[in-house]
Structures are given as structure tokens and as C-alpha cells.
Write a protein that binds this DNA or RNA. Structure first.
Length: 432
RNA sequence: GGAGAGAUGGCCGAGUGGUUGAAGGCGCACGCUUGGAAAGCGUGUGUGCGUGCAAACGUACCGCAGGUUCGAAUCCUGUUCUCUCCGCCA
């Protein structure tokens, strides 16, 4: 949620920003409601003052008949205008919540993902002297993947992942956890990226996989509801990303500035209904209803927010490079970054099976947009109380990164070369 | 799932209808005291919203949401969470 004071002072910019992001919100109507609501609030406060004066005039003793009679009159009137205020407030809030976060000035303006900008391309695309297969063909042949039985048991877009592919997943997990919880590695990554940021390591977290409606909404991630799984009989949803349960973790809390940045590395199974994607990416495990993901989330001061985002991007590049995967960095345009985003950057790894780059990572910088409703704050050394800034970013989406490893590392025999950094976690095996 | 107890400020904790934003203590900040410190003494110490250039003033907040009342931290209802006992269970 944006600060209403900011909207009042920058109405035109906010309206234009919403338009660029593809959100249909009426800022003028919001501001009209805002002033109407403030007018009503003044009225309500005056009546409350009147009521309080009437109460305190009793001064500890029994009030007079007159005072009680007067109190009744005030009460009736107050109830009336408080109800009006309540209605105004709820209309106002629902409109305010619709206003998307301001995109950073360096986010390209665009109407669809086609206008995203490829910033750089790293690594060379592998050339095979045999017919390259896609991950689904390789994995199915090796007995690593069984979607038919999963369809029988659960439905489409589910899979049984088995055998060495499971071992590969756990190897990736261990590699990432060891890397990101190592302060020296963070220092190295930051230095190589020329970033002056804290070298504080990430705290690995196994978060709950369910989230309350209230928290989901405060994170501004409840929508689109069509893409969420709701649990019948409980006020709970299956989380769609560890971001949702990590970002809301410190709701209502006040950090000491010395405790920031606070960095988490969450490992969680994420659930998505994938509504509206029928027939899209049906082969293999590219687009599933559930997938495991390592996700970074951090809380910083406003000052450190932008650099934290750059650190997250640098970490993503580092991780991809360590696996020897070709990738490109994409600056997402206004239409493609999310509603709570100030900046959105994607990593796309080269997938030989599809002969194109596909999204494997996202890095989101939310400024204080999420914190405002979560009420997550920091007490600065100066004593000032401020909203914190949130950053979240994929470390690895396990399904998609294993696709990249399989397809880029495939051999003519249908085997898979193991990236050297993962070999220690696979008993030294160089090929699967 | 059943029975019971509870949730108050950064922390501990008092408070069952009347000037309670809330006693007392701890902590913290500033000042006095001291060669310096401790102790002691004094003063101060929540957040949101609104009005205002500001000082300030008003208002709301005692888990959350409603209700009763002239008046609610206090009474009533619902709800969330915590704890104890029973049941079930990895």
C-alpha cells in the first residue's frame, strides 16, 4: 500500500504509474474519498470530544440527570456519524489498496512482457553433436519422472520425481544453503559486484506452508485468488512462494537498526493453481501445481533497500554461473513487474530442449509498500521510527533449475553431467 | 476433539464500570551529585490518525471484531493465540 500523503502530493504521477503498470484505478476518486473521510473524521472527533467532556464532568461522582440525558443525545448522533465514517473508511481503504507501488524511474515503461529489456547475456549456448533431448524425455527414460501415475493420483501438473533427480535436488539445496549462510561468500559476491552492503549471511528457514487470509492480503499477494489454493474449513491458503510467509513473519514488529539487514533463505514447496495456463508448458516439470523453491527475503532500512536488490541479483548471477548455466538478465517493464514492485528483474536460463531462455529467477524490490500494511518498522539509530523495505528473490526454483542442468549437461548417451560445485554433494559423482 | 486458565506499554506487573494512556517496578534518555563510576535524587520515556507553519491540541488504541451503558482495560458475544489436563497422533 502507498502512503496517502504521497498520493496527495503526487496524484498525477501516481495515476500515470498505475496506467503504466496496467492497473485501472481512479486517483481522483480516491482523493475525493480521502478528503470526504477526513472531513467526517473531524466531525466524529468533535463529537467524541463532546462526549468525553460530558463523561469527565461527572468527575468521579454520579452524573446528573441532565448530563445523562445529554449523553444519550450525543451517543445517538455519534453512532450515526461513526457509521458514515466507517463506510467512507472502508470504501477509501479498498480503493487505496488497489493503487500499485510506484515503479522505479529506471524500470522501462511497457505494455506487456514483450517490452522487457534484456540487459546482458552470459555464458555460451551449448552445441551438441547429437540430437538434444528435452528434460522430460531424458528424465522419463531414466526413471526420474513419472507424470502418468501422478495424474492418476493427483491430476495434471503433478509429478513423482525419483531416483538420481531427487539426489540432484538435495545437492542443489545443500550447495545454496552452504553458500548463502557463509559470510565470506556473501562478501565475495558483493565485492565482485562492486556493492557496499552488509556481508551478513542468510539464515536458512523452513517456513510454514500455509498462510492466513489477513497476512496474505497484507503482503498484497492474495490476488489473483484464482491462482491460490484455499483450504476448506480453515481461514488458510497454501502459500505460493516462501516470500509470502517470510515477508509477513515480522508483521507488527519494530527492529533495531543494528539488526538490519535481516536475511532469510527459505526452503518451501510452493503451490499454484496455474489458472488460465491450460495447455501451456505441459511437458515435463516446467510448470507444476507444486514446486520446491529456495527463496531469499530481506528486511532493510530504506537507505539500504536498493543495494540489497542489487545484491540479490548478484547472488542469482553467481549461483547460475557456479552451475555453469548460460543465462540472460532481464529488466522487466512496468506492465510485467508486480503490483507491489518498485523494481523487478528476471533471470532466464538457456533451455536447449526448448531452444530458448526461460524464466528461472525473479528479484523483487518492494520498497515500503508491503511493510506499510504489515506494519514492520525499524527504530533508526537517530530514534526515528520508519517502515522497513523488503526485497525478495529466487535463489533457485528447484524444478526449473534441474531442467536447465539436465538439458545443458546432457550427453549423447542420455546421461547428465553434474556441475562441479554439486559433485561434493553427490558423493563425488561427475555424471548421473 | 473435550475441560479449564490466560492475553495490559520495550520488559515485569496492578487494575472487575466513572477525570485510566493506564499504579508500581525494571529498562532507557537527560540533568543533579562524583576526580570518575556505582548508588542516590529529579525530570522525561508508546503508536496511529486528524487539525496546525509550529508549539500544541483533539481523537483512537489494554490480542482482534462486535455489543451493552450517559460512561468499558473492567460486563456480554464471537474469534485468534498461549498455557494446563484428557483424548488422538508423526
Amino acid at each position: 500500500m502507498l502512503d496517502i500523503r504521497y498520493i496527495r502530493d503526487n496524484a498525477d504521477a501516481v495515476q500515470l504509474n498505475a496506467q503504466n503498470k496496467g492497473y485501472d484505478v481512479d486517483i481522483k476518486k480516491l482523493l475525493d474519498l480521502d478528503s470526504e473521510r477526513r472531513q467526517k473524521l473531524i466531525e466524529v472527533d468533535e463529537f467524541r470530544a463532546k462526549r468525553n467532556e460530558n463523561i469527565s464532568s461527572a468527575n468521579g461522582s454520579r452524573p446528573t440527570e441532565d448530563s445523562i440525558a445529554q449523553g444519550k443525545v450525543i451517543k445517538e448522533k455519534l453512532g450515526e456519524i461513526e457509521l458514515q465514517l466507517k463506510t467512507l473508511n472502508s470504501d477509501y481503504m479498498s480503493l487505496l489498496k488497489q493503487v500499485p507501488n510506484m515503479s522505479s524511474p529506471d524500470v522501462p515503461v511497457g505494455k506487456s512482457e514483450d517490452e522487457n529489456v534484456v540487459v546482458k547475456t552470459i555464458g555460451s549456448i551449448p552445441k551438441f553433436d547429437f540430437v538434444a533431448l528435452n528434460h522430460s524425455e531424458i528424465a522419463t527414460k531414466r526413471g526420474w519422472l513419472d507424470k502418468e501415475r501422478a495424474a492418476k493420483v493427483t491430476g495434471s501438473r503433478f509429478a513423482y520425481v525419483m531416483g538420481d533427480l531427487v539426489k540432484l535436488q538435495f545437492a542443489v539445496i545443500q550447495f545454496v544453503i552452504n553458500t548463502l549462510s557463509d559470510e565470506d561468500k556473501i562478501t565475495e559476491i558483493a565485492n565482485n559486484a562492486g556493492l557496499k552492503v552488509s556481508s551478513r549471511p542468510f539464515i536458512p528457514v523452513l517456513p510454514p506452508l500455509m498462510i492466513r487470509t489477513e497476512m496474505y492480503d497484507a503482503m498484497d499477494r492474495l490476488e489473483p485468488k484464482d491462482d491460490r489454493y484455499k483450504l476448506e474449513g480453515d481461514d488458510l491458503w497454501l502459500q505460493g512462494s516462501a516470500e509470502h510467509v517470510l515477508g509477513s513473519m515480522h508483521s507488527g514488529e519494530i527492529f533495531d537498526e543494528a539488526d538490519l539487514p535481516l536475511r532469510y533463505l527459505g526452503y518451501a514447496t510452493s503451490f499454484r493453481r496455474e489458472a488460465g495456463t491450460y495447455g501451456k508448458d505441459m511437458e515435463g516439470i516446467l510448470r507444476m501445481h507444486q514446486f520446491d523453491k529456495l527463496e531469499m527475503e530481506s528486511f532493510t532500512t530504506a537507505d539500504d533497500g536498493p543495494n540489497e536488490h542489487l545484491l540479490f541479483v548478484a547472488i542469482q548471477e553467481y549461483l547460475l554461473s557456479q552451475l555453469g548455466l548460460p543465462y540472460q538478465v532481464v529488466k522487466k517493464c512496468t506492465a510485467d513487474i508486480g503490483k507491489p514492485n518498485s523494481i523487478g528483474v528476471d533471470m532466464e536460463a538457456w533451455l536447449p530442449g526448448q531452444n530458448k531462455y526461460r524464466e528461472t529467477h525473479t528479484a523483487d524490490y518492494m520498497t515500503d509498500y508491503q511493510a506499510r500494511r504489515l506494519q514492520t518498522k525499524v527504530r533508526r539509530a537517530s530514534g526515528d521510527l520508519e517502515l522497513i523495505h523488503t526485497n525478495d528473490a529466487t535463489a533457485f526454483a528447484l524444478g526449473r533449475i534441474m531442467i536447465a542442468i539436465i538439458e545443458n549437461g546432457q550427453t549423447s548417451e542420455g546421461k547428465v553431467n553434474v556441475p562441479s560445485v554439486l559433485q561434493p554433494y553427490l558423493s563425488g559423482r561427475t555424471i548421473l
